[in-house]
Design a protein around this nucleic acid. Structure first.
Length: 492
RNA sequence: GGGCCGGUAGCUCAGUGGUAGAGCAUCGGACUUUUAAUCCGCUGGUCGUGGGUUCGAUCCCCACCCGGCUCACCA
């Protein structure tokens, strides 16, 4: 192990501890009587009773003044000041504390509670114990000083230790997931797990990662969605299932994309995209109430209102309102392109009607959808797994939820007609052959499942990481994923 | 992939074509109620990597690596 100067100094102290018969990484440690938060809450009673307490945490600040010393310990939720005096803790232990501890060490102290002249609740230490010697120094004793984006992500453990608000961000993430789970469990949905390694990938438009099973001599794909397996479970007779798990998509990395990301998918037998809209609304609102006691969340200086019914607007109306182009009147590429030109819109020319519609939407509508909005009724070719609208088969019963100018959720009335589904797969196959490397693969077994019979079903996918941005007031997905994807650093 | 910006001490940053700077941390000293403790003193650097220009490059030029923003791609 190569140690730098600062680490060498600490290693010297570690050896000095050992020479004094002190294990720098002891297996047996004192019993912790209070967390630092509990200590603060119960301070008055404990101080009055003169109760001896034992607390533990990371040494974050240290102020030695000759024959006495103050220090701050940090634990998961709080900080607390401790006071040592040579007279009370003993010559030898005091000297060890002064000479052999460093910022970042994890220690335990035992003592009674008192309040300093300056009014700071503190522990008057009678004994202390080294729990774990830190060899690498913490970045800076002042909070928030470890701010280099790259370093924070490569060494998240330092980031978390140095920046309490980062720990808070991830606590909110955990509570969000817990709340959604709770909401679904209460409504009878069964949490399930389906394969990550798949011989045929599907359920989304994306390129997969490939891998290989050595023993079976078989190439496999990392899943890009859980959709097709979850629907098989609905065929099997479950009324409602959901899965929270990682998906893997072989695509670029930016503020809203990470190659592995967490998705919630929910399927509700005998539901449809309208019942799913209510579920989506209810679930996200429930999470906000659980976490913030409010249905209004402040995000980057604006209030996002999750209360009440969210706006619902068809894709046709949304595009028409912004551009004057009516995609229901212009049902073929040529007429649509003509209308776009007449309206004088600056927009890229796409190869098909459906993709042109998508482009219109992405350019002129999506960025302006800040408050939660359901966009409904999508062009069929963009939605190979969704059921057609009975009165207009060029469109499907689908919605996407937008907020903060980004897509948060995608849902539809699931296509359960095996013949139509087969045609859609064939169409996807033609797209793939024509160069669309994100088109879906034919999945014969899934078709067989539909032939066995799937009830009318509503399905939903929510990008947990993106939803997290709202709940944690963050602007990049890297801030809500502990270890986001980064390139390898040089050698080492 | 294109454009722009950045990489200097453990951390946060300044800086110059002529032997590299600050705050905090570290190290030595003083100090028994401090709290970003204070005071005195001292350390600490392949200036992202590799080339080039130059008497001399951390600085200028080229390539590359890593990161950020942005456009493109992408749900």
């Amino acid at each position: 192990m190569e140690l730098n100067d600062l680490q060498q100094t600490r290693y010297g102290k570690l050896q000095a501890l050992q020479a004094a018969g002190i294990d720098p990484y002891p297996a047996r440690v004192p019993q912790r009587t209070h967390t630092l938060t509990a200590l603060r809450e119960q301070f008055d009673a404990l101080a009055e009773a003169g109760t001896s307490v034992t607390i533990m945490g990371r040494l974050r600040q240290r102020r030695v003044m000759g024959k006495s010393a103050f220090a701050h310990l940090n634990d998961d939720h709080g900080a607390f000041q401790v006071f040592l005096s040579k007279a009370d803790v003993g010559d030898e232990p005091f000297k060890h504390f002064v000479d052999l501890t460093d910022l970042g060490d994890i220690i335990a102290v035992t003592g009674t509670l008192f309040t300093t002249k300056m009014g700071e609740p503190s522990v008057h230490v009678t004994s202390w114990t080294m729990l774990s010697k830190a060899i690498t120094p913490p970045p800076d004793k002042r909070e928030g000083q470890f701010s280099d984006q790259e370093a924070r992500q490569r060494q998240r453990y330092v980031d978390l230790a140095a920046n309490p608000e980062v720990r808070e961000t991830f606590r909110i993430r955990a509570r969000l997931i817990t709340a959604m789970r709770q909401y679904l469990d209460q409504r009878g949905f069964l949490e399930v797990e389906t394969p990550v390694l798949q011989a045929i990938y599907g359920g989304a438009a994306a390129r997969p990662f490939t891998t290989h099973h050595n023993q079976l001599h078989q190439d496999l794909y990392m899943r890009i969605a859980t959709e097709l397996y979850l629907k098989r479970l609905i065929v099997g007779g479950f009324d409602g299932v959901y899965e929270i798990g990682k998906n893997f998509r072989n695509e670029g990395v930016d503020r809203t994309h990470n190659p592995e990301f967490t998705m919630l998918e929910v399927y509700q037998a005998y539901g449809d995209y309208e019942s799913i809209m209510e579920l989506t609304e209810g679930m996200i609102r429930f999470a906000a109430e659980q976490i913030f006691n409010s249905t209004s969340i402040e995000y980057q200086g604006q209030q996002i209102e999750l209360g009440g019914s969210w706006q619902r607007i068809t894709m046709r109306d949304a595009i028409f309102n912004k551009t004057g182009v009516d995609i229901r009147e212009c049902r073929e590429f040529d007429t649509l392109w003509e209308a776009i030109r007449e309206a004088g819109l600056k927009i890229e020319r796409k190869p098909t009607w459906a993709k042109q519609v998508d482009e219109l939407f992405s350019e002129f509508v999506e960025p302006e959808l800040i408050q939660p909005t359901f966009i409904t009724e999508y062009p069929q070719p963009l939605s190979p797994l969704a059921k057609r609208k009975a009165d207009d088969p060029q469109f499907v019963e689908r919605f996407e939820l937008f907020m903060l100018g980004a897509e948060i959720a995608n849902a539809f009335s699931e296509l359960n007609d095996p013949f139509d589904q087969e045609q859609r797969f064939l169409e996807q196959g033609r797209d793939y052959a024509a160069g669309d490397d994100e088109a879906m693969q034919m999945d014969e077994d899934f078709l067989e499942a539909l032939r066995v019979g799937m009830p009318p079903t509503g399905g939903l996918g929510i990008g947990i990481d993106r939803l997290c941005l709202l709940f944690t007031n963050q602007t990049t997905i890297r801030e809500v994923i502990f270890f986001p994807h980064l390139r390898k650093q040089g050698e080492e």
